[in-house]
Amino acid sequence: MKELIKSLCEHIAPPGGERALSNELLEKVRDVAHQTSIDRLGNVIATKNGDGPHVVLMAHADQSGVMIMDIADKGFLRIIGAGNLEPGRLVGCQVVFQNGVKGVVQLEANTKDAEIRFDHLFVDIGKSSKASASELVHIGLSGVIVAPFTELGATRICGGSMDNRVGCAIAITAFRDLAAMNRHVSVVFTAMQTVGARGVGAATFALSPDLAIVVDAGPCDDVPGHDVSSTELGKGPIIQVMDGTAIVSVRIRRHLEESAKKKGIAAQFGVWPKGSADTDAGAIQLTKAGVAVGGVHYPARYVGSTSTVVDVQDAQNAAILIVEAASSYEG
């Protein structure tokens, strides 16, 4: 699992730019799938025909980033956000664009920390004129923060694209296990989730799942400043009760809970108000006449920041939980 996550983290995939990651994702599942495709919005889809209700695993492929929206006279780039990065956290960070060009994000002089918006930021790519900068980059080119995959001790890892390459790795692992059990299962690596769950609806429309399980980062609050934590790193996968987009039906949630028990896995519950951990779940649930949806998330610290910390054991247990729940689901 750790190696899989590491290899997925090597790609730059801001929202709308998921195609840089598509081939690698397809390679990880192609040998066990009956059909694979990339749809019009960039969702990567693999399906294994088999027994039982059609269960679809959904993990978003994109990561939050920035996009160039102007190239100024002295070769400085102006950027807008693409996803959920807070502009104030980007000051001093390095950014790498889709074509490999790197730069440093900095702040206009005389801006107070509390007021930082994207219009106050610029990127220095080492060029001194608009013309020379324009040879390297163009308006509309996206980039992500440079924060490579790093091991923190035996089981914990951090990096800028943990959210949601860890989810992709869990979905790949669970999909392969379910395919080996000859279940009817699909996996979708969804596009443009970080800008507001824009891709997943199209894939859901195409697949008409009997059950969709979303795999995403579940923010945990076991850090200094919180006296009591609701979710903790290393304490097992998080079964979603609700996020800002969907309330999971009690029937699905109970099924996930029982599946965890059956496998002897400790699980936690995720109850997130709007904006704190929005996922693809809502867009799935409201497709066509409605779709049964659940969420199995991995605990992640500092979601929305430039580097996220995850425990690989949580990810492994999330995959086991998903396989059990999907293979015992009767519709």
């Binding site: 730019g17 509309g140 443009m192």
Partner: peptide
């Protein structure tokens, strides 16, 4: 459009 409030351009 390259990106607006509700779309990222289909490149």
């Amino acid at each position: 459009t390259v990106q607006d409030g509700r779309t990222v351009a289909d490149v």
